[in-house]
Amino acid sequence: MQTLTNRAKPVDRRPMTVLEKLYLPAIAKGMGITLKHFFKKKVTIQYPEEKRPFSPVFRGLHILNRDEEGRERCTACGLCAVACPAEAITMEAAERMEGEENLYREEKYAAKYEINMLRCIFCGLCEEACPKDAIYLSETFAPANFKREGFIYGKNDLLIPDPKKEPEQYQKALGSRVKKS
C-alpha cells in the first residue's frame, strides 16, 4: 500500500542476530543519544525573566477597551453575547446619567458585564461581533484563582486602565494585538 507520507517505516520482523540479542550495542547507542542531548543547547525559557514572543493570532484574556479619552466604548448592545458560542457573556445595560460623559462614550453603557472564563473558549467571535471595538482578546493569560466564582470576570476585571491616568499600564494591557484605531 502506498503510504501517504512516505515516512512510515515497516516493522522489521527478522529474527534478531546474536549481536542484537546481546542488546549491548543498542544500549550503547541509546546511551550515546542521551549523552548527545546532555550537551545540547537547552531549549528551556526561564519564564518569568524571559518570555516567548506571542504569535500574531494569539488570543488571551478579554479586555474592555476605552477610547483615547478614557471612556468606555461598550454600549451594551449585546452582540457579543449573541455571538458567543459558549454563552459566556452576560451584561446589563444602563443609561448614561448627567455628568458621566467622561466615563461612557455613548448614552448607553454596560452597568454589568461578566464573562465566565471557565466557559469561554477564546474563539474571538465576540471581538469580531463588536461594532464599537469595545471588546478585545488580549495577550494576558494564565488566570489563577482558588474559587470558581473568581473566574467570572466582572467589569473591573475586564476594563483596562485609563490611558490618560495610567498610560503605561494601558499600553501593557492593550498588548500588541489591538487594532490601533
Binding site: 542521551t34 542531548h37 543547547k41 537547552k42 531549549v43 528551556t44
Partner: peptide, 9 residues
C-alpha cells in the same frame, strides 16, 4: 542530569 539529558536545566 535528568534535565540535561532531556534538554532542560
Amino acid at each position: 542530569v535528568a534535565g540535561y539529558i532531556q534538554d532542560r536545566y
